[in-house]
């Protein structure tokens, strides 16, 4: 692992442990793209994807491209390092992001927001999902503010 950077939570996984439902997301992630699985029956969009649509119980999905932008729905500023490895990292910002072109709930992403000021970040701030490739199979999603 490289040296710790303030505000950037180091990845604890090197593999996404994908199943057939989530593999398309991670394939796209390696190319820097955000995708969701869309229910072919009712149009609900899922991240992470699973075996069934929770709105209509359909089991057929298609992979769709998202712009990868969204808004901060809620966030925290972690100031106390829970692990020794986080001593140089705190304070860091973690957020729940509502992605554009989704219904929100069911397709939210929970990410570390980097390159932002922890003292001024706010709910509603526009962000973009970026990926930090940590292995040949896994790229960690994070968010950066959209200026």
């Amino acid at each position: 692992m490289t040296t710790a950077k303030r505000g950037v939570v180091p990845s604890v996984l090197t593999d996404p442990h994908a199943d057939p439902y989530t593999q398309p997301f991670w394939n796209a992630a390696l190319q820097g793209r955000v995708t969701a699985e869309e229910c072919t029956q009712c149009g609900l969009r899922l991240i992470p994807a699973g075996p069934r649509c929770f709105r209509c119980q359909n089991s057929e999905f298609r992979t769709i491209e998202l712009p990868g932008t969204g808004k901060i729905y809620s966030f925290i500023v972690v100031r106390h390092p829970l692990l020794p490895s986080l001593k140089e990292v705190v304070p860091y910002v973690s957020a729940v992001v509502d992605l554009d072109q989704t219904q929100g709930a069911g397709a939210r992403m929970v990410v570390n927001v980097i390159d932002c000021n922890p003292e001024t970040v706010a709910i509603g701030d526009a962000v973009r999902i970026v990926f930090d490739r940590v292995s040949d199979t896994y790229a960690v999603p994070r968010a950066v503010p959209v200026k």
């Binding site: 996984l13 442990h17 439902y21 925290i76 929970v110 570390n112 999603p141 994070r142």
Partner: peptide, 13 residues
């Protein structure tokens, strides 16, 4: 590791 773990665990939450 459950398949949804990688979606949130590196968030710092």
């Amino acid at each position: 590791v459950p398949a949804n773990t990688a979606f949130h665990i590196n968030s710092g939450v």
